[in-house]
Nucleic acid binder design. Structure first.
Length: 876
RNA sequence: GGGCGAUUAGCUCAGCUGGUUUAGAGCGUCUGCCUUACAAGCAGAGGGUCUGCGGUUCGAAUCCGUAAUCGCCCACCA
């Protein structure tokens, strides 16, 4: 067809089709009688931009949802974004700082106005980027973790858990982020190995002139908060210290020696300084021995008044300075290099400070029980299954969840403090006031007397409700959508958020709906560059997905990323994969151009070769359909795609189309043409979930469809049983044709010169019509003796030869035949060795023995054929 | 310190309950071809002692043990 360019141009078709799908509401789903299929998107950060991880993740989701839709299910993919408390607040604070505005200069309301402005400006960019990828999300259902329904759901759940006694408030040692100025959950702390120093400091013993003990520490600045030194009671080196006190260096404070077997005698000097305010273990010791707690840090990591010295200096500056001062005072024994793990904030990368503070917590232990069981019994299936281990370990060692954050951007904790002390928890201000009046017995109380807790909730405290709250299942559990779509079908996400999100969603599912939130969890790998480094902004090794789409087309990129994404592995991404995807698009495009360019003659009889080719391809296609169905069921998506790729490229394009291709200038018969269009249609449907744009474009050219129809909603081809014999026969044929091609190549005989094929040995002639066409043969003759001037090759035990004008290179041919002979003789020997082993024959299953016998007889026949060929050649 | 996973062709990976596997695929490499669908292509070819060692078995890439290397997760040794 002349109107089709020789190359596929994605830019011309992608936006057109996306608009078409949207215009006809093809992504939208409403409950009906069909089986539901539902995916909820892992909500990206509202102000984020698309990166390669999203590309992978969302391509997989789109493939799954498009496939389900084409299987006739009522498929829904719900999109949305996450308010991403800390990271969004940090971005807004940074933006304000650029304008010379400090967060502390603003009221909460003013700050939130800025934050919402920011959200409206940048929010949703990422969702529009997903459209470029072809994501078939139901945009009418787009949600945000801070929209009305989701926010009210969070309030409801908080109150519910509080009323069930599962939320409490208390002073605990928490992970403090001195940059974001908020507490973090344990999961938000990332431990990194760092090269640091171990400082050995002298603590003078009180009342023992000149005597001192040496304490090893990595954080000398914290001596300002030391309130004891601890040794192991079994440590004889220090038994003399019992009941004594030591003087904290520089500070001059006298602190007790305590004895506890928590201290490892082997580590450092066996003496541990105890700073209850700034170390989790020290806190535990302080608690146990009633030690004083001196909080020497301000929230931003500088030294507080309580530190007494270096007040206002940053903790890291103090570390340097105090060592200089200690050195000058002769209180440093030595300094050693030391590698230790330092906790960093996941969001800001600031070094975490353990800090004692008042926070809100969720009791997790009981909530975890049904959630653990669901995964253990595969009621919720994890793919790959190895993540069950990770999940089990975390769930059985689950800690209480610190949910309060000292932020403004997020869901404000629904607790109101009373003027008389104490607090009430309620979903709304009005309700809070009523409760407050009831609790205080003071009917005069007004809202202005109550002070709402200023803290916000952890972002994940809203995302853990996502599969429920998207359908308003918290506020209105009887609604139609929720009853129809919940539980959702598949969740596609990265293993890095298995604790943050996946585990907690499962917990929430059972805590609030008494059922799982989804049936399958597919964990993708992490996208890395081709030398295995994680993609990151700072390394600059992450390509811009939108540029890739520009360059290779959305379908090309989708294919590229899927080819690289075997189940359960990280993805070694390389642009060349997208190139391969683009090339495949081009292949499909050109195959289509070929077929659509044919003149059709419905009067013309169907050539036998075409009839046979159709018979074979039907079998081959069904074989692949079955394979693809099986692979997709196991989430082996890249393997399924590869199977389709090979079906289209190798079998359909390279074999089938060549078999049925009419001679140049002559028309194709109607019967074959119609069948070929049918095959093409089937292939396009099979490909559509992976490559939505090109398949829609070609489907439009292929079918006389009405406006509003789409391949998106066409039925996926159903796998049917197939004729294995037909495939085997064709495989044999391929070998014979390959033999002919090799001869042509070696003898430099052009394809257009027809040849005679001589056959010595058994030959099934049922596909000879194809053989003649593909080999350009004038005749196929059965012979007894191979003529001297003929080039030959052997398939199975049959020797095929082609008379050639030029002399054949006897030496060359002999060499090749002899090496063939050697190979088969060795093979035969190994088979015979097995068969002559009595134990093998006695113990192996009959089937296996029979198989070996078949191998033996095949090899014998083959060897005979090769020997005959050698002999014939030698006599020549 | 505990656990999990990996190690198969130059690269990325299949190979599920041991037996048509002296091991497959895609990409890359090499050799021919601008053959009127496609050079983003066509037709071919080469490439591996399945990380090492030991064991179980008639039979091991596959199961067991062990060592090495790499990766990931978890953990309160300052």
């Amino acid at each position: 067809m002349s109107e089709l360019a020789t190359k596929y141009n994605p830019a011309e078709v992608e936006d057109k089709w996306y608009a078409y799908w949207m215009e006809h509401g093809l992504f939208h789903s409403e409950p009906d009688n069909r089986e539901p299929f539902c995916i909820v998107i892992p909500p990206p950060n509202v102000t984020g931009v698309l990166h390669m991880g999203h590309m992978l993740n969302n391509t997989i989701q789109d493939i799954l949802v498009r496939r389900a839709r084409m299987q006739g299910k009522n498929a829904l993919w719900v999109p949305g974004t996450d308010h991403a408390a800390i990271s969004t607040e940090a971005k807004v604070v940074a933006k304000l700082a650029q304008e010379g505005i400090q967060k502390t200069d603003l009221t909460r309301e003013e700050f939130l106005t800025h934050a919402w402005d920011w959200t409206h400006k940048y929010g949703g960019i990422i969702l529009s980027q997903l459209r470029k990828l072809g994501a078939s999300c139901d945009w009418e259902r787009t949600a945000f973790t801070m929209d009305e329904i989701r926010s009210k759901s969070v309030m409801r759940v908080f109150c519910d858990l509080y009323n069930r006694g599962l939320i409490y408030r208390g002073v605990r040692m928490v992970n403090w982020d001195p940059k974001a100025l908020t507490a973090l959950s344990d999961e938000e702390v990332i431990y990194k190995e760092e090269q640091s120093k171990l400082f050995y400091l002298r603590y003078m013993v009180e009342g023992e002139e000149g005597k001192y003990i040496v304490v090893a520490t990595t954080r000398p600045e914290t001596i300002l908060g030391d309130t004891a030194v601890c040794v192991n009671p079994n440590d004889e080196r220090y038994s003399w210290l019992k009941g004594k006190r030591v003087i904290v260096p520089m500070v001059g404070r006298s602190v007790p020696i305590i004895m506890d077997d928590y201290v490892e005698m082997e580590f450092g000097t066996g003496c541990l300084k105890v700073t209850p305010a700034h170390d989790v273990n020290d806190y535990m010791l302080g608690d146990k021995y009633g030690l004083e707690t001196i909080d020497i840090f301000n929230d931003n990591g500088t030294i507080s008044e309580a530190g007494g010295m270096y007040v206002g200096m940053d903790r890291f500056d103090v570390r340097k300075q105090i060592m200089v001062d200690l050195e000058n005072a002769g209180l440093v024994e030595k300094v050693e290099d030391y590698v230790n793990k330092v906790g960093h904030s996941e969001r800001t990368d600031a070094v975490i400070e353990p800090k004692l503070s008042m926070q809100w917590f969720v009791k997790m232990q009981d909530l975890a029980i049904p959630a653990l069981e669901a995964v253990e019994t595969d009621y919720i299936k994890f793919v790959p299954a190895k993540y069950k281990n990770t999940y089990r370990y975390w769930m059985t060692n689950i800690k209480d969840w610190c949910i309060s954050r000292q932020l403004w951007w997020g869901h404000q904790i629904p607790a109101w403090y009373l003027p008389t002390g104490g607090y009430v928890v309620a979903e709304t201000e009005e309700e809070a006031l009523l409760k407050a009046i009831e609790k205080t017995g003071n009917p005069e109380l007004t809202l202005s007397d109550l002070k709402r807790d200023p803290d916000c909730l952890d972002t994940w405290f809203s995302s853990w409700l996502w599969p429920i709250s998207l359908f308003n299942g918290i506020l209105d559990p009887e609604n139609k959508d929720f009853k129809y779509y919940y539980p959702s079908t598949d969740l596609v996400t990265g293993p890095d958020i298995i604790f943050f999100w996946v585990a907690r969603m499962i917990i929430a599912g059972y805590a609030f709906c008494n059922d799982k939130p989804f049936s399958n969890v597919y964990f993708t790998g992490i996208v890395r560059d081709k030398i295995g480094r994680k993609m990151s902004k700072s390394l600059g090794n992450s390509p811009d997905p939108l540029e890739l789409i520009d360059k290779f087309g959305a379908d090309g990129v989708r294919m590229g990323i899927m080819l690289a994404a075997p189940a359960g592995h990280d993805i070694m991404y390389d642009d060349s994969l997208c190139e391969q995807g683009r090339n495949f698009c081009n292949k499909i495009w050109n195959a289509f151009r070929l077929v659509k360019g044919w003149q059709v003659d419905y009067e013309k009889p169907q050539p036998e070769a075409s009839a046979k080719g159709i018979e074979w391809f039907e079998a081959e296609m069904n074989r692949t359909l079955i394979e693809v169905e099986d692979l997709m069921g196991k989430f082996r998506i890249s393997e399924a795609l590869m199977a389709i790729y090979k079906l289209f490229w190798d079998e359909f394009s390279s074999w089938y189309l060549e078999v049925i291709k009419p001679a140049y200038g002559s028309p194709i018969d109607g019967k074959t043409f119609d069948k070929t269009l049918h095959f093409f249609d089937t292939l396009l449907r099979l490909l559509h979930p992976f490559m939505p744009f090109i398949t829609e474009e070609l489907w439009q050219h292929l079918t006389d469809r009405n406006c509003g129809e789409s391949i998106m909603t066409a039925r996926l081809p159903k796998a049917e049983s197939y004729d294995e014999e037909a495939i085997a026969r064709f495989d044999y044929l391929k070998e014979v044709i390959a033999g002919i091609r090799t001869v042509r190549k070696q003898k430099q005989i052009p394809q257009k010169d027809s040849l005679e094929l001589l056959v010595k040995g058994p030959h099934n002639g049922s596909l000879d019509s194809i053989l003649e066409k593909m080999g350009n043969l004038s005749d196929i003759l059965s012979i007894e003796e191979k003529p001297a001037a003929a080039a030959s090759f052997i398939v199975a035990s049959t020797e095929y030869s082609i008379p050639v004008a030029s002399n054949i290179n006897v030496e060359e041919e002999l060499k090749k035949l002899n090496s063939d002979l050697e190979y088969h003789e060795k093979f035969l020997a190994s088979v015979r060795k097995k068969l002559s082993n009595e134990k093998f024959v006695a113990n192996a299953p009959e089937k296996v023995v029979a198989l070996e016998k078949k191998k033996e007889s095949d090899a014998i026949e083959k060897i005979a054929a090769v020997k005959a060929a050698i002999q014939a050649l030698s006599q020549a």
